[in-house]
């Protein structure tokens, strides 16, 4: 236990980096997700197909391979990326694909008659999207994005494998340093501690997501607009 306390400043720094990456990638995923998710419900078959391809590709390739590709593959395109940048880009592209699915599902969950009756009132397509479809879809989208944050925070650990000094990477360093300098292997205590911290963090976020879902569902009345759970991939992969 004293080992954990001695290294607390280090752990805190790692934890901060983890949270930072989580929030930054959530923002990027939201932007990508809303753009692609909206394109995925347009009338253009070509656009729908392009989004579909992007989403399917990013969901078929393991996230870690995706991050390796960004990190090791960037020089192929004449770019030199820091581990931090590579991890953020890799996670954002992945989060964006899932975000696109969330937004698409949310928009498709709004009953078709809503758009039709807005059209019958003479509203234009952009007006229908902003005034009618999006506000209703948000009820399903917001909790799903909160859930996505949980998955993103969990997947920041993959950044450790390209050397991002986030929580897991810092913990690895602590284990190594202690083993070398004090001759004892503290892997059990340190990784148990890391597991507990992640558990507290992620279950709080999961709880917040479920809470948001129930609050928004109660406010939204009886109309079913799809639940957040069905929109979100259940796992990181």
């Amino acid at each position: 236990m004293s080992l954990i306390l001695d290294n607390m400043p280090l752990f805190l720094r790692g934890l901060l980096a983890t949270l930072q990456i989580g929030v930054v990638t959530l923002i990027a995923s939201t932007i990508i997700g809303f753009i692609l998710g909206t394109l995925a419900v347009t009338r253009s078959r070509l656009l729908r197909l392009v989004v579909r391809g992007y989403v399917e590709l990013l969901r078929a390739v393991p996230l870690i391979v995706n991050i390796f590709f960004i990190f090791f593959g960037a020089p192929l395109f004449g770019l030199q990326l820091t581990p931090y940048a590579a991890a953020v880009i890799g996670l954002s592209l992945w989060g964006g694909a899932n975000g696109a699915e969330i937004v698409r599902g949310g928009l498709l969950g709004v009953p078709r008659h809503q758009a039709q009756s807005a059209r019958a009132l003479g509203m234009t397509e952009p007006e229908i999207f902003i005034q009618i479809l999006l506000p209703q879809a948000m009820r399903a989208i917001i909790p799903a994005f909160a859930g996505l944050l949980t998955l993103l925070v969990q997947s920041t650990t993959l950044g450790a494998l390209v050397g991002v000094p986030e929580f897991l990477q810092i913990s690895r360093l602590v284990v190594e340093r202690t083993t070398v300098m004090q001759g004892i292997d503290p892997a059990f205590q340190v990784y148990a501690f890391v597991l507990v911290i992640y558990f507290l963090l992620c279950s709080t976020l999961s709880f917040a997501s479920r809470w948001l879902e129930s609050v928004l569902a109660a406010r939204g009345g009886s109309r079913k607009t799809g639940t957040a759970k069905s929109l979100l991939p259940e796992t990181v992969s």
């Binding site: 650990t157 292997d185 990784y191 890391v194 597991l195 558990f199 992620c202 990181v236």
Partner: peptide
């Protein structure tokens, strides 16, 4: 617990922690 902790940390715990 399993759903709210990263798989990678679980792997590290099993591979490097359990031998203790």
């Amino acid at each position: 617990f399993m759903r709210n902790t990263p798989l990678l940390v679980q792997m590290f715990f099993i591979v490097f922690g359990l031998p203790a």
